[in-house]
Design a protein around this nucleic acid. Sequence first.
DNA 1: CGCACTTTTGAGCGGAATCAATATCTGTGG
DNA 2: CCACAGATATTGATTCCGCTCAAAAGTGCG
Lengths: 228, 228
Amino acid sequence: MNRTLLLNERKKTLFVETKLTANMDMATMNKLMECATFANCYPRDVVFRQGDPATHFYSVLSGYVRLYRQNSEGREADIRVCGPGDSFADDLIFGGDTYEYHAQAADKAMLARYDINRVRNASLVDDGMLARAIAGSLAGQLQETMDCIANDRLNTAVQRVALYLLEQAEGQESPASFRLSFQKSLLAGKLGLAPEALSRAFATLKGLGVHVHGRIIEIEDMDALRAL
Amino acid sequence: MNRTLLLNERKKTLFVETKLTANMDMATMNKLMECATFANCYPRDVVFRQGDPATHFYSVLSGYVRLYRQNSEGREADIRVCGPGDSFADDLIFGGDTYEYHAQAADKAMLARYDINRVRNASLVDDGMLARAIAGSLAGQLQETMDCIANDRLNTAVQRVALYLLEQAEGQESPASFRLSFQKSLLAGKLGLAPEALSRAFATLKGLGVHVHGRIIEIEDMDALRAL
DNA sequence: CGCACTTTTGAGCGGAATCAATATCTGTGG
DNA sequence: CCACAGATATTGATTCCGCTCAAAAGTGCG
């Protein structure tokens, strides 16, 4: 068994597990696969830049990608952090000809890279399955993004961090423990905080039984966090 | 010509001018129309509540609808303000069975009200046009919503207000003038501000040649705002 | 003309950003 | 295995933005 074949099998598996392909039949998945190439990224690699003409959209197979915008002084604000299974820039399939944000690998990452025009054309000639899958993906992203706005506007830094920890510990009983899936500086950005603010939020949460050792988090009492 | 007929013609016109129907052919539009009823709302009418089972999605034909979420203490945060042509809760067509936010008329409003199940089923049997139209609508909303996050995180109150005014004055030369399309308290919510903060932002902008008389806005020099 | 609602203004406070310094972690090579 | 360098994270001090509460002023409608 050669190495390339193994790699392709792995890619294929990850491709199938993507949110975009989750509810597709085989035929549609194959159509989509034909529009795809694969790309490996190293940390800090730029996937595309705001203002670039939009040619491709992406699914994350492994690793993380950070979507962000910059203001005139160069300060950056994260819009979304995409992990395995997430897709991004697919909002440009049905309109929009330039990327509206920067995309940068936040880790070693493997991406599926779809040609926008080919996917759009494919969606024009199939029975609607492809368009429905895209719509489903966009709907999920829209919900997440609206959640994010509400969360930003309604909750303080400590509350947002507590909420994130609870989401990560989903399904565990108190006491829960897990490993953060990415760096704290990236997490800070995702939550709309400066890294210092995240640090201070963790310090506050220590008083409620949250222990942080590097990337390992231990939560003594999940209900104490829920009560915030 | 009777009154009801006139009214229906008006509804039909507004229906056609909706973002959702913008790129549809007649056949698809008719299919969609068959899933619709119409509703008139008075200011502060509740369209649906967070947690309600999702049965319908909506297009705004006239007036404004506010989408918002509440925290445990009852404080409210606006997620989106929908005006003529906008649709909302269409993110639930392909997944999600409860509304994730409150929707409230912010004005006398006329809405098209679509049965989610019927539209979903219609989208399963057509050639994909319906699904593509929905995907296009969701893509637009997603872009707006991501813009909102970036804007919130990157700009101060004064900058956000200035940006909003520039958008509203789109296409005019300096000096520009126009009327706000809704109350200041609603605008404040849309921009993620307390009403007092909006007021103070206007006060600050007075120094840059922005004059506010009730809902009438006059901008002496648009470039001065762009420079913020 | 008066009442209710919306908006503005003022004062004080609190949360998070910024800047700066220190501590901790990670991976590399001696 | 340890020492070291560079990156990452924490802590402290300060500033500033925007929220809250309270009161006054403005607006519009019957």
